[in-house]
Design a protein around this nucleic acid. Sequence first.
DNA 1: TCAAAAGTGTTTCTGCTACACCCATGC
DNA 2: GCATGGGTGTAGCAGAAACACTTTTGA
Lengths: 232, 232
Amino acid sequence: MSYTYEYPRPALTVDCVVFGFDGEERALKVLLIQRKGEPYKNCWALPGGFVGMEEDLETAAIRELKEETGLSNIFLEQLYSFGQPNRDPRGRVVSVAYFALVKHGKHKKLHATTDALDARWFPIKQTPELAFDHANILKVALERLRGKLRYQPIGFELLPEKFPLSELRHLYETILEKTLEKRNFRKKILKMKVLKALDEHQQGVAHRAARLYSFDKEKYEQLRQRGFNFEL
Amino acid sequence: MSYTYEYPRPALTVDCVVFGFDGEERALKVLLIQRKGEPYKNCWALPGGFVGMEEDLETAAIRELKEETGLSNIFLEQLYSFGQPNRDPRGRVVSVAYFALVKHGKHKKLHATTDALDARWFPIKQTPELAFDHANILKVALERLRGKLRYQPIGFELLPEKFPLSELRHLYETILEKTLEKRNFRKKILKMKVLKALDEHQQGVAHRAARLYSFDKEKYEQLRQRGFNFEL
DNA sequence: TCAAAAGTGTTTCTGCTACACCCATGC
DNA sequence: GCATGGGTGTAGCAGAAACACTTTTGA
């Protein structure tokens, strides 16, 4: 079977930059797969692939992520489209990149599925050489993550459902690469009223157990519609 | 001549949302073209067209803009990619949308070129029915414009080289749809040191002539690199 | 001399920053 | 009882907001 057009067409792919935050190592990580086929065989790359003919772009991103890494049901948002004529040795390939956030703990075990040799988390500071222009895509994604983190409550997407405030702070400190004053951070975030204080505490820690909180998405939506702006 | 591929491929287009600010009417406007051919013949639409095979996405946007409206040398930035499977009746067409800002006065006269029946500025509040999903693209562009305006000095792209402070304020008031206190606006923007005060004043106004300013791009770049953040 | 917008300073108030000590818990 | 991080209050300061009058110019 083949398909014929009057004019040439670029191929269209999606690529996903999946970020996770490892609370234990206090490190921001990115999910990469090892390529099974040519080009860049065995090379590490962002998960992604060709867009189906009847498939929405976001749907394609979700599907590829599932196929190549086993991940599903995660925060996903379009990042940018990359279309340099020579970014792929096979010919003209335009890629719509997505940017995803996952609760790292939940997905520690990754499936290296049929489409990829391997799938692994890499600390953002120690990524291998990447295929295509993926290093650049990753760079853009990282800038976007840092930019959004301060103005939108997306940090919660990287944490488990229930978390102590200190973990949220560590996440901000790690990603923004600066330390935040403990008391002021607490005041600021609690004053926004987007966290639900739970009647639960940490367990099995060698010190006073911290209270757990959860992000109150409904409350946030209500506030946002009244013109409230999350900003940290 | 025809082109054959093993798998089907979506067609790829670029569309441009071009904003201009009309200082006299104090209105934000968008540039639309009237379609010459099917589908949506005679309907108003965003300028745009197919991406060439060896052509960078941004280059394609610049070229289409030139071809359909005569505009060139303007601020252009990628907005978002739209890929709903049924957004174009001709079949699967994915469009990378760009978002452009022009100095309205300079380009009051538009060429209705060979590719379009007509090209016109429409106040954002009074746009006609648009072809395809262009109404949605416009909506996304407008949100982006409002969002960026506060945190990046892009307002200047909509003004002439030299302008009085009041015009800059009117621009902000119009786009953000709220009034700004005259004295505080002046203080805030001047304190940033990104405006050059010129030794020129308005001419032919029926009241005290205001001093003209120009945006100092180099100064802004210097400040930005030292961690300064434009915010209004 | 009137109309219309330019231009200017000060006070008030809010909200951020900086900072040090006691508390609860597991080992 | 000690080490570890959890949790709290306040004083000082900077910057935003609010506000009214004088100046300049052309008609």
